[in-house]
Structures are given as structure tokens and as C-alpha cells.
């Protein structure tokens, strides 16, 4: 019973932090459009938080550049467990048009674990909301299963 309430609370109150890992800003504009009143993501409990310490979901846009790699890792480690990552846009998935560049890691999943990929250049707000909704189901499942995200508690930062 208690576990179910906890799982429900995880699912119903995702706070997101938005991080531009070297993108061209198109995806960022779409992420900003997602949280405008028109789409009303507060129905799902989604709130945009400034601090990664408060966030459950990290939304990453952009191929990870060599310079931003350390920052991305630091932001990721600053988030409290259980934490999830959504990669938004073609660049965040595979490096996109920057694939193979000397200064680009080629996708967010080369640096930190990614849970959901939202393709598009840039993806529409509906697609981003659908991606976050997929993570929400995963959050609920993980909270209910015994070997969920709780085990990988990392200390530091």
C-alpha cells in the first residue's frame, strides 16, 4: 500500500531540469514552448525547476560538446536519486548533423545513461510531452520493483 502511494507520487510529481548540452537552441525553444500555458503540463504535475537538486528528470538538448561534458556530468551527479534523463532532439540522440565532429561526443548517452529518446529536429512540444509521459510510466515501474533505481545511490558532489 505504502509502496503504491510512493510509486504514484513519483509518477504524479515529476520536476524537470532543463540543460542545453551544446545544442543550437531550437530544441530549447521547443522545451520552453512545452511548459507554456497552452500545453498545461502542470496537469501531469510537471514543474520546471532551476536547481538540479530539486529535479527528478533532466531534459538534455544537444550533442555533448567536449567543453560541456564535465558540466553535464556534474549536473547529473548533483541530482538526487532516483533520477531520469530524457534526450530531446536528433543531436542529443546521435550527434545529428554534428556527428563525427572532433569536439562532439555524439549523443547524451555517450556520457550519462538516457531513459527516453525524443527524435526530431526540433521535436514538437507534443513529442516532448509524450517522451516525458513514457518516463513517468518507467518511474512508477521502478518504484514498484525491488531492484529499481534505489540501488544505485551515488554519493558525492
Amino acid at each position: 500500500m505504502l509502496e503504491k502511494i510512493v510509486a504514484l507520487s513519483r509518477k504524479a510529481s515529476p520536476w524537470v531540469a532543463h540543460f542545453n548540452s551544446g545544442g543550437c537552441n531550437a530544441c530549447d525553444i521547443e522545451v520552453m514552448a512545452t511548459i507554456t500555458p497552452r500545453f498545461d503540463v502542470e496537469r501531469l504535475g510537471i514543474q520546471l525547476k532551476g536547481s538540479p537538486r530539486h529535479a527528478d528528470i533532466l531534459i538534455c538538448t544537444g550533442p555533448v560538446t567536449g567543453q560541456i561534458r564535465e558540466r553535464l556530468l556534474r549536473i547529473y551527479h548533483q541530482m538526487p536519486q532516483p533520477k531520469y534523463v530524457v534526450a530531446v532532439g536528433s543531436c542529443a540522440l546521435s550527434g545529428g548533423v554534428f556527428h563525427g565532429c572532433y569536439n562532439v561526443m555524439g549523443g547524451v548517452d555517450q556520457v550519462i545513461p538516457v531513459d527516453v529518446y525524443v527524435p526530431g529536429c526540433p521535436p514538437r512540444p507534443d513529442a516532448i510531452i509524450a517522451g516525458i509521459a513514457k518516463v513517468l510510466d518507467k518511474m512508477q515501474e521502478d518504484a514498484l520493483s525491488k531492484d529499481g533505481r534505489e540501488r544505485e545511490v551515488d554519493h558525492g558532489c
Partner: peptide, 13 residues
């Protein structure tokens, strides 16, 4: 209420 419950079950840093 759900926001509060979620915060109580998150990792403490």
C-alpha cells in the same frame, strides 16, 4: 500532497 510524499522519498544529499 503527492509532491510532498515524493520529496520525502528522494535521496538526501
Amino acid at each position: 500532497w503527492l509532491d510532498t510524499i515524493k520529496l520525502f522519498t528522494k535521496e538526501d544529499v
